[in-house]
Write a protein that binds this DNA or RNA. Structure first.
Lengths: 249, 249
DNA sequence: CGAGGGTTTGAAGTGCATCAAATAGTGTGG
DNA sequence: CCACACTATTTGATGCACTTCAAACCCTCG
């Protein structure tokens, strides 16, 4: 399934970097240098953006589409680290690694990204304290997310994890919209939540029976979100109900 | 088991802060301000250092003993986030939280810590780019650890997790010492690894049978560490054999 | 010695994974 | 627009790993 194709389009691109939280406070010189170096690249579904261990030159901002970050064990099992979409940045933490990406990245569907040279970021962080602070905040946010992830994996059962996942999608859509659309196919949701597709299917049915949600294909209708939190957040140590940490980009 | 006793000793204390990686590059003024504000506190086994959600005033450096960081769910289950000993720092990430500790801390055995006012650190990070960079590195290190933790919990079985834990203890003792002592009681090791004490006991026996280690009470003798890596690192996506990330303080 | 924890062992239950097969859904070419 | 191919999803059956409950053992310390 993984193909590495080097014939991606890499064109200069117009982009308002200062609309991204990390660069909001940055000075014009740095931002214009970044903007000048920015290149648009497109990847088709299944294409690999970079592989774990590749030498690092760029970090990426997603303009459109979905990308999954994953790692592989010696025996070939794939562990999905995370799945990102529009507005999210990835690969930037390689600054603190020894020049290698800490995971692989693959387009989950056709995706359009901005590639930015990581050296520029690295140097600016060294020189610009505000950027360093923003980066610290962003890493702290990520850290909270990871902490919660670890907890969820050990304390929540499959149905509760799905419920929690749905609740976070609810939070992201401004209003508490009563029906939400799964962002990508169920197999991928399953791997994001660390379970098998079969388990996902069964766990989702169980969740339906317990919380009165309705499922039509990849759409989920939720009449009473509180019933969902009651069930899902029971085994979670976060504040009740769970505040969305995911949305931080 | 949790008692909150406010009658801890809090005495001024002499300490060479610059021997800690985070402060190595810091200027004299800041370091002496910190040193002046440093207070020694002792906690007996089972005593609570702070609770999740407490207002944050201090962060801590462990001088001697063991502290566990944990969170609790609504139904009272305790999830051990981590267990730290001499030289480690904890509570400092509260800088990026909204004035609350993100977990609770409890002395696992009698422990001696240095309490330092977190405001000083917060202000210095804002002013001192080098400190911010060191903090970034430290968070990146933590992040790698967490990433690996998530992976281990989903890909390794109980015996492999124990094997991995032992290997990290081996790395920490400079030579590849052939026998190591469990740092705290088995119940706690079990919860650190996210399993039940009974599971730990059984999994350790299985590990013994598979890798030829010998177990005498809380001492483990390892003749061939390579046999241990062969078995434990099989299900892990890190470089083989697993490099120690834990040791970063 | 005896009480009380930590640790081990046994038996039974639960949840998820795995393998296998049926079904639904999607896109393709005719 | 239909039939076909292919993939995603669901369902069933079974197995394994870990948990849970219970009891025995062991160790330490008063």
């Amino acid at each position: 399934m993984q193909e590495k194709i080097s014939s991606q389009i890499a064109l200069p691109v117009e982009i308002d970097l200062q609309s991204y939280p990390l660069f909001r406070q940055c000075e014009g010189v740095f931002v214009s240098a970044l903007q000048e170096a920015a290149r648009e690249r497109r990847f088709e579904k299944g294409q690999v953006v970079f592989l774990h261990g590749d030498g690092v030159e760029c970090f990426y901002i997603i303009r459109h589409g979905w990308v999954k970050l994953y790692r592989e064990t010696l025996d070939g099992t794939q562990a999905v680290v995370d799945i990102f979409t529009t507005g999210h940045m990835f690969g930037e933490t390689a600054i603190f690694e020894d020049g290698m990406y800490p995971y692989s990245a693959e387009a989950v569907e056709d995706v359009q990204v901005i590639a930015l040279p990581i050296d520029l970021l690295k140097n600016e962080i060294k020189a610009n304290n505000k950027l360093a602070l923003d980066m610290l905040c962003s890493m702290a946010r990520y850290r909270r997310r990871q902490d919660r992830e670890i907890e969820h994996r050990s304390l929540q059962n499959a149905s509760q994890r799905i419920g929690c996942f749905l609740l976070r999608l609810l939070n992201q859509s401004e209003d508490g919209a009563a029906h939400i659309h799964l962002p990508y196919d169920k197999m991928l949701v399953a791997s994001r939540l660390g379970m098998q597709p079969e388990t996902f299917s069964r766990a989702l049915s169980r969740l339906r029976d317990k919380t009165g949600i309705r499922i039509k294909g990849s759409t989920v209708e939720i009449d009473s979100p509180s019933q969902l939190t009651d069930y899902s957040c029971m085994a979670c140590s976060s504040e009740y109900p769970c505040k969305d940490i995911l949305s931080g980009k």
